[in-house]
């Protein structure tokens, strides 16, 4: 009886693993396929042709990959560092709770709606349809996340460290450089990767502010879907999934985001 139960559990968990791995395998298969018409269960062509074309031709996927990487890297760097320093002021503020609540507003609103309501200002500032505009808009979403993320870092412990540095004659800069930043190193890395992924996965806001001119990978996926070019769509999906899978492999906590 108990072996039957163990068997049932084993098969169920094996099925669960297959279920989890299936999307990755299917998208990879689709990215390597072509002429895969209904009702065929296997594509007429299967090979590296699509991938070779991506490297050599004008699909623009390589440039999209670079644009996405550049924007996400900038958003992650800026929001992590600025978020870290500003979250300190909020954490020690007497109205900490109210300010934290305010921080949630831009973060909780659907980014696409936020962008649509802000598009007038982006147009006036000349940021519409430019990578820098997409960067600013994404930063507005990633920055509150970083503030919320670091809110649990600051407390009595960090305060007492800062006081200790001051007692020993150190200034604020030294307190940050020699004590606070080294303690926060792990959190800074996690926040960096999570804000990187917020930007990397972003579609709606980018489509509004970028107006199709800033073609990040998510925009490309959607364009290929609209063109019914599912093979290139799947290929873009593979490129989109690659960095987070690598991050997961390095450290699971870089991707598991408790706030999203």
């Amino acid at each position: 009886m108990s072996s039957m139960k163990a068997n049932w559990k084993f098969f169920f968990l094996a099925a669960l693993v297959i279920l989890v791995v299936f999307p990755f395998a299917y998208l990879l298969l689709l990215s390597m396929a072509s002429e895969w018409r209904f009702p065929e269960l296997w594509p007429a062509y299967f090979g590296m042709r699509n991938w070779e074309q991506v490297v050599s031709s004008e699909t623009g996927l390589i440039s999209s990959f670079l644009v996405s990487t550049g924007i996400s890297f900038s958003v992650a760097t800026m929001s992590t560092f600025i978020g870290f320093f500003i979250s300190r002021g909020i954490a020690y503020h007497p109205y900490k709770r109210t300010i934290t609540l305010l921080t949630y507003f831009p973060y909780i609103l659907a980014p696409v709606v936020f962008a649509a309501c802000l598009s007038y200002f982006f147009l006036k500032l000349g940021l519409f349809g430019k990578p820098v505009g997409v960067f600013v808009a994404q930063f507005m979403v990633a920055f509150p996340y970083a503030l919320i993320f670091f809110s649990s870092f600051w407390g009595e412990k960090t305060k007492s460290y800062e006081e200790l540095v001051a007692t020993l004659g150190g200034n604020q800069l030294q307190a940050f450089r020699k004590v606070l930043l080294p303690i926060a190193k792990n959190m800074l890395i996690i926040c960096f990767f999570q804000t990187f992924l917020i930007s990397w996965f972003e579609y709606g806001l980018t489509s509004i502010i970028g107006v199709g001119k800033v073609q990040t990978l998510t925009i490309k996926v959607f364009l290929f879907i609209k063109e019914s070019n599912f093979y290139y769509g799947a290929l873009s999906c593979c490129l989109l999934i690659l960095p987070p899978v690598l991050l997961l492999y390095i450290n699971k906590r870089y991707v598991f985001n408790k706030l999203i």
């Binding site: 693993v17 999307p23 996965f201 579609y203 879907i225 999906c237 989109l240 991050l247 699971k252």
Partner: peptide, 28 residues
């Protein structure tokens, strides 16, 4: 293995998940 597998879906953004669902459940 399971502990790692449980994290894997987090690497899939909404637009990819929607694309994948479409590929699975559409008429063709």
């Amino acid at each position: 293995i399971l502990a790692f597998a449980m994290y894997l879906p987090l690497a899939i953004p909404g637009i990819v998940a929607a694309f994948f669902t479409f590929q699975l459940l559409a008429k063709a």
